[in-house]
Amino acid sequence: MMRILGVLALLTALYAGLVGTYLDNAPAHEPASKTQERIQGNLVDVANIQGRYGVIALGAALVIITGGIDLSIGAVVGCSAVLFGVLMQSGIHPFVAVPLVVLCGAVVGLGNGLLITQLKLQPFLVTLCGMFVYRGAARLLAGTVSRSQTIEMQPDFSSALQSVRYFLVGKNIKGELEFPAEFILLLVLAGVVGFFLHRTAYGRYWYAIGHNELAAKYAGVNVSRQRVAVYVICSALSALAGVLLFLDMPSIQSDSGGQYLELYAILGAVLGGCSLRGGEGTAVGMVLGAMVLPVLENLVSIRGLKSDVIPAVIGLTLLVGTIVDEFIRRRSRLNR
């Protein structure tokens, strides 16, 4: 509980700030129900983005718990988004294309994992190179892909694509956001990840490997296999996020789709309690951690801050949040 207290406090403060700003800015004559409706609408918008960030944060956190890191997340997201579009345009049905793309993500993760465990290369290096490679692969696949372009080329897929969109992203045929499907998806995935992390032997192994690989090895754990498994999960989740991105954005550009997402994923994981040294982290924490940045960006935007000031404000807020969090954690350790 202690571990997530810090991020919980940060989130509460941000949400309070958000609601407060809305209440402050509400015109005097506006009925309370309308204000509430607006606040709800905004929170639902934000929730969808939190969902997407959360999906990749889950993968990043698992990798970090085992003491590794994955810098190729953003590139895999972008490449998967492009791949999804290209597959459908080539005639593959959307219902088939989604699992296919996730499978490709898993293969990418397998590659990362094998390079790291068999050739004993540093994860930082392997995934950094992967970032360039998959970014390049995306550009080779296509320049830009979009939903409308896909429907144009494959009009039969239109309804299937729309139902996938509704189911995964929550937008109806007119593009209206009806419910935060991505957030619900996150909760489901977080539940599964949490189950494996906290309730199964595999989770124990991941924690052990992250903290003391030698102890795990001597205990008979197949360290390589577990490491590879975790990278596979991470890249598969990134691919899923790529599909979500394709369905949510008007178009995806291969050179920039998913840019910087690995940093947001790692940020979410770390804010949620993962230590970059490995061996720490909880499923609840990961979700909370991923929720921070979208809310923060939203708050800053709603308050009408000048564009130039925004990056600095975001950075400082995160720094303060991190300091408070570390402080809380240290006190809890002393009182054990």
């Binding site: 494996f196 309730r199 199964t200 032997a201 595999y202 124990r204 192994y205 924690y207 052990a208 992250g210 903290h211 003391n212 030698l214 102890a215 795990a216 001597y218 205990a219 008979g220 754990v221 061996g279 720490e280």
Partner: peptide, 27 residues
């Protein structure tokens, strides 16, 4: 060779955990 970030119980059974649920290996 203990995993210091885990509990004593976890360490006692590391690698040999009693589990249920077959392949899921629920602790």
């Amino acid at each position: 060779n203990l995993a210091e970030n885990l509990t004593v119980t976890d360490n006692l059974f590391l690698g040999r955990e009693p589990t249920t649920g077959g392949g899921l290996r629920v602790l």
